[in-house]
Simulated scan of single mutants.
Amino acid sequence: MDIIKNLALFFLIFFCVFAEGFSQEAITEKELESHIQFLTADSLAGRFPGTKANQQVVNYLVNDFKSNNIPTLIQEFEAKLRKDTTSVTTWNVLGLLEGKDSILKKEVIILGAHYDHLGKKRDSIYHGADDNASGTAALLEIAEKIVAHKNEIKRSVIFIAFGAEEQGLLGSQFFVENPIVPIKNIKLMINMDMLGSLNEKSHVYMGGAGTFPGGEKLMKKLGKPNHVNPVVHAGSVDGSDHVSFYKKGISVLGIHTGGNENYHKPTDTIETLNISGEVNVANYIYQAIMEIATSEWKLKFIPQD
């Protein structure tokens, strides 16, 4: 059964876009910056789960997917907060592009990034520009570029903005326990968490490249044409939402540009980011997805120590 026919069975809210629109092919510094400016605005007070600001972010993500003619869905779940164990309602936001190959479209690649952050503590807003407004902005821009080439993809692609990652990977855990497609059909999950601090050596770090055939070679090969210097690990699967997928026997890539002195501090603001460098990182990730989604690349899970 086609993926799209299954979707309504799994979601609380289903948005589908029918109007014709235009998806921009280029990933631009201007658009990345615009997304990050919205996500780090003082009015959103650090994008904490369960707040009105959280709802505003969800609306923004839905509207962006819809504006690019991506069928868009919301997955609602309860998140138990670390600070006091109370539960709040929050959401994952998903967009779906179905592949064009009658057989390979049953295989799914997921591109994800968490949109939440730490909120406000005392009088300080934890803006979370690098962590993870940068990844969320890249998710939207890469999705838009893939839509511009949607007729080329053989495999299906699901874009997911996860909620409540900072509370313990809760959004991704909820998704893998409540997937919209059979879990066995998810062949690769690429996670973006902190893409805004590309250094002078253009290092892009990743773990999990050995969890699928040819992963290490592919990610190294794509570095130079995209003006980045990949630091590729076969294993090292830890730290963010891709872990939830790895635990289910799904191949993963966890991609970031390294830690910095602003991590989990109020000083993680847009002014500290290398947004022009993020354009290169986003194009690098886009190219990796297209290499796999448009081909008959043999995908299987390879566990790592």
Rank of each mutant, 00 (worst) to 15 (best):
D2P: 14
D2A: 12
I3F: 06
K5S: 15
L7E: 11
A8R: 05
F14W: 07
F15H: 12
C16I: 15
C16E: 15
G21P: 00
T28H: 07
S34C: 05
I36S: 05
R47C: 09
R47I: 05
K52M: 11
Q55H: 05
Q56L: 14
V57W: 06
L61T: 10
N63D: 14
D64S: 12
S67H: 09
N68T: 06
N69T: 10
N69R: 14
I70L: 11
P71R: 06
Q75W: 02
E78L: 08
K80Y: 01
K83Y: 10
K83Q: 10
T85Y: 09
S87T: 15
W91E: 12
L97C: 08
G99K: 00
L104P: 00
K106R: 06
Y115N: 03
H117A: 05
G119A: 00
A129L: 08
A129Y: 08
E141K: 06
E144W: 03
N151R: 08
E152Y: 12
R155S: 05
S156T: 14
S156E: 13
I158V: 13
F159S: 14
G171A: 02
Q173H: 08
V176Y: 08
V176H: 03
N178C: 08
I180W: 05
I180K: 07
V181N: 01
P182H: 12
I186D: 00
K187V: 10
L188N: 03
M189A: 08
M192K: 03
D193N: 11
G196Y: 04
S197Q: 10
K201Q: 15
K201M: 13
H203S: 10
H203W: 09
H203C: 04
Y205R: 07
G207H: 00
T211R: 06
P213G: 04
G214D: 03
G215E: 07
K217G: 00
K217H: 10
K220V: 07
G223L: 10
K224W: 01
P230G: 04
V231S: 12
A234G: 12
V237M: 10
H242V: 00
H242F: 08
I255D: 04
H256M: 02
T257Q: 02
T257I: 01
N260H: 15
E261K: 15
E261G: 02
E271I: 04
N274C: 13
E278L: 14
E278T: 09
A282I: 12
Y284P: 08
Q287E: 15
A288R: 11
M290V: 12
A293N: 03
S295L: 02
E296T: 13
L299E: 05
K300T: 05
F301H: 13
F301M: 04
